[in-house]
Amino acid sequence: MNEHDVQEAGPGGLASVLMGKGALSSDWLPAFKAVPRDAFVPDKLWPGTAGGNRQGEVIDRQTDPAKWWGKVYSDIPLTTQWDDGAHSGTGKGRAPTSSNSMPKMVFSMLRELSVERGCRVLEIGTGTGWNAALLTHRLGPDNVVTVEVDPAVAEEARRRFGATGLEPLTLVGDGSAGHLERAPYDRVIATCSIARVPYAWVEQTRPGGIIVAPWGPAYGGQGIARLTVGEGGVASGPFVLSSAFMRLRDQRDTFPPTSSFPGADAWSADGEKRASSLSPDDMGDWIHMFTLGVQVPDMFCRVQAGTDGAYRLWILDMAGTSWATADYEHGRTEYEVVEYGPRQLWAEVEAVMSWWHKQGEPQFERYGLTVTSQGQRVWLDSPDNPVPVRVP
């Protein structure tokens, strides 16, 4: 099979998959056909999984074009940069920092954006440029502004825009500031995750406009927030689906090392031991991580691997004063817990999970977000029902 054969089969097959999943709607099909994904993917890529948190080995178009085409026209994310460009070569770096997003997520978010003829759109996070090119095909270059923090990534996207004849206004800068000169916008879309909605996005969106952005707390778990901007500078709306995006560079979290916590080296010597029926394995579910992070925003976790699938889950606070561990082994119904410091962090986790069960185990679609000039709050079912925040 040569590259041309794969190309001919790839787009049509991917379109069928996306339409079958309900992601690619008929109004976006012309853009999908006119803006091929392969035109916005570099020769070297690291194929991801549907969850987006694991990358396979590098695939090079020059040495294996058939495999490259097959991955490009699969419904998976494609990592295209590691470590803000500091990493080179064909191996994996420490952290992926740019990608061509999973097509299902791309078109699901574009669907939620609800663009109409004449809409002016601000995109945060140009990346490889595919998303901005799709918007440009539908709305025209004068109606799309895209902002990218990485100059090299932005320049490569400009090259691809020029090659396809789709050239939105492409800027290098901090996306959290938006782009005031072209405001107000009818729509704002972010292709990077945030823990705080920059209020500049709300200020630069006209009343009645829509903001679509991946939002998630430091602990983990992300959902796509679809916010409508009101007359009083308040943006509010539901989470419409789960997501897994790289963080806006301006909002990346820095967590203290475990070794800096008092008592962590000695581990169980000074900590308080007890048993818990709450399994550490439940803490890895995306919705659980989201709920924990919303209610205890200064908490984060690490996993210490053991043998035969066993592991130790560390729960730590940002201040570096308290920690807890819970040991997981397959088949157990009670788990050894050690807590250290002024806070009983595992007890806080248990309280959050008890709340979640009592609320009927809500998924992302029951949560929502409201943003004002004073801050933001997550709510359940209604803006009048804020999710409790358990600050010490």
Rank of each mutant, 00 (worst) to 15 (best):
F245Y: 14
M102F: 02
W130F: 06
A347T: 14
T97V: 04
V234D: 00
S243T: 14
P151K: 10
V153N: 00
V35G: 02
A235Q: 08
P151Y: 11
Q55C: 08
L278K: 04
V147A: 05
G12K: 15
L169D: 13
G175H: 06
K21R: 12
H137T: 03
P238S: 11
G221T: 08
R343K: 05
G13H: 07
K44S: 09
P362M: 06
F245E: 09
V58N: 09
G223K: 04
E365W: 03
E334W: 05
S243L: 02
A34K: 12
P103I: 10
L24V: 07
V349P: 06
P262R: 04
A177L: 12
T321H: 08
D270I: 04
F364Y: 13
D64Y: 07
T164R: 06
S88C: 05
E8K: 12
S276F: 04
S236K: 05
V337E: 02
I194L: 15
P214V: 10
N2C: 10
P362L: 06
G13C: 04
S25I: 07
S114I: 06
A195H: 12
T325D: 03
D270W: 04
V145K: 01
P297I: 05
V389D: 12
E156C: 03
M19C: 09
S322I: 06
D285K: 14
M102D: 07
N143F: 01
A347S: 13
P47E: 14
T291Y: 06
E329F: 04
Y335S: 10
A351K: 14
E350M: 05
W69G: 12
H330S: 15
L45R: 02
G368D: 15
M283Y: 06
R247Q: 15
G263P: 03
A319M: 09
F161C: 01
D281L: 03
Y340E: 10
D381S: 12
N100V: 09
F107T: 02
V303Y: 03
L292F: 07
V391L: 14
Y185I: 03
P207S: 07
T372M: 02
V172F: 07
T307A: 14
G162L: 06
L345Y: 02
D43G: 08
L380W: 03
G284S: 14
T136F: 00
Q7E: 13
G341L: 09
W130E: 00
A86K: 13
P262V: 12
G10H: 04
L278Q: 13
R252W: 11
P168K: 03
D317V: 08
T128I: 00
P257T: 08
M246H: 05
A195Y: 07
G140R: 01
G293A: 03
F261P: 05
F255A: 09
A213W: 04
P383E: 02
W286S: 15
F32D: 11
G12I: 07
W267N: 08
A157T: 01
E334R: 10
L345E: 04
R226C: 11
P151L: 13
E156N: 07
P217G: 14
L316V: 08
T291V: 15
P386R: 02
G173S: 13
N100R: 07
P214M: 08
R61A: 06
D84T: 02
Y367I: 04
I124W: 01
W28E: 01
R54L: 13
G223P: 03
D174M: 05
D38F: 03
P168T: 05
V378N: 02
G12F: 09
V352F: 06
L78Q: 01
H87M: 11
I124S: 00
T164C: 07
V197P: 01
S88D: 10
R94K: 15
